[in-house]
Design a protein around this nucleic acid. Structure first.
Lengths: 163, 163
DNA sequence: AAAGTAATGTCAATATACTTACATAAAATC
DNA sequence: GATTTTATGTAAGTATATTGACATTACTTT
């Protein structure tokens, strides 16, 4: 027989279990429907994130693979593959850094920039509008706050484990 | 020059953009740290989800691949691979349905059930506790509500697209 | 009953994601 | 200056995830 304490734990577990299950489902649905929304332009949601990041700083200098990986919170190894596919389609370019021959500077090509501005931005805007249906601005602020908090916790777990 | 309307849209886009980016980061971090937490037991977070689903209904009848796929919101094709790996490690069994020879009934094995109860449940419980640090019960309820709402929207986008 | 349709699970191809391992180049230390 | 350590990007291997295609089986329709 369970005491009140363990019962409360069960309830808390159930709540968090639902939250993380929904998170998992949302992420899958986001990837699936997002890719569906932009697949006519020959890109995926992850490639979208990369193009978006590159569009923010079209400075002459570009950005390195490591910097981009940090920004997107993915491994450098993962980016290598995504960048290769983007490069194969002519959306980005990789050039050796003149100051550090280990490093590669990643740039948006003219084609990539045009695709981003003319096709992807409007498409994403419409997609976000649908996905945020029924969310007030305050709801969105609250949601973002919770996700930020959760991410902090998860990152903390990751760094704890490493030590 | 932008008018007030397009500026508001930019702001809304920025908010939703942050939300979905955080969602993406949270899902990656969940998979990464979650797998890290249970890898000593030879399973991953997805396999965890399958074992958890199976543990809920240890009825004699088991569950079919299609039913499991619906429950977990993943494709049957995806489950085929996950189930194969779980079966290879002896955590689940697949048997032909006596009433429908197309269908396979998926069961937890004794080994799988023991692993779930004795090792995974405590580990997950501790993990959730860390991941929900700083979340009041009301915060968790609110978070779950927002995720439910978002998932509804995303599923709606998916079904719209299909028609 | 026979033919067409739908359901069930699997295989193949593609794209993320991770970790481990490695070649190369830069930085730090002695 | 030579050696060690660190940083950078990539390659290889494993596990998800998707869609498309398929063989097999069940159901529907005629």
């Amino acid at each position: 027989m369970k005491d009140a304490n363990s019962k409360n734990n069960d309830i808390a577990d159930d709540l968090s279990n639902r939250i993380f299950f929904r998170l998992y489902q949302c992420a899958n649905a986001l990837h699936k429907t997002g890719t569906n929304a932009v697949q006519d332009f020959g890109v995926t949601t992850q490639q979208l994130a990369v193009l978006g990041a590159l569009s923010h700083q079209r400075a002459e200098s570009g950005i390195s693979v490591g910097e981009l990986a940090d920004f997107l919170s993915v491994s450098r190894q993962n980016l290598t593959g995504v960048l290769s596919r983007l490069q194969a389609r002519g959306h980005i370019s990789r050039s050796v850094d003149t100051d550090d021959s280990r490093s590669r500077r990643i740039h948006l090509t003219q084609k990539g920039l045009q695709l981003w501005r003319e096709n992807l931005v409007p498409e994403i805007s419409a997609y976000y509008c649908e996905a945020m249906q029924g969310f007030s601005t305050q709801d969105q602020v609250d949601t973002l706050h919770f996700l930020n908090k959760m991410l902090d916790n998860l990152v903390q777990i990751g760094t704890d484990k490493r030590s």
